[in-house]
């Protein structure tokens, strides 16, 4: 199975036992991968890869390394 890496930042880590790095299957939308590892998609304000944002409906490619950021403090 081909995989990719999600990298939750800040408070999002609490949804994956404090880990900063989670392996997920590729070939599915990011939104689905978030649900698979227990990170509520609604809390992910921005997904970032290679300094570019990634839409939650985009299909994850093998080897992708995607940073996940929540907006805690807001405006």
């Amino acid at each position: 199975m081909q995989t990719a890496e999600l990298r939750p930042k800040g408070m999002l880590k609490q949804y994956v036992d404090g880990r900063g790095c989670v392996e997920v299957p590729s070939g599915i939308p990011l939104r689905e991968a978030l649900s698979v590892c227990g990170i509520p998609p609604d809390l992910v304000a921005i997904a970032f890869m290679d300094q570019k944002p990634k839409n939650k409906d985009e299909i994850i490619q093998p080897g992708d390394r995607i940073e996940l950021h929540a907006v805690i403090g807001g405006g």
Binding site: V44, A45, V71, G75
Partner: peptide, 22 residues
Amino acid sequence: AEGLVPWQQYGTTIVTSWCNEV
């Protein structure tokens, strides 16, 4: 800070898509 680069790039507009989604 982990969130430095996206914040520098987008500033407050970092939340536009997310606010729409929620």
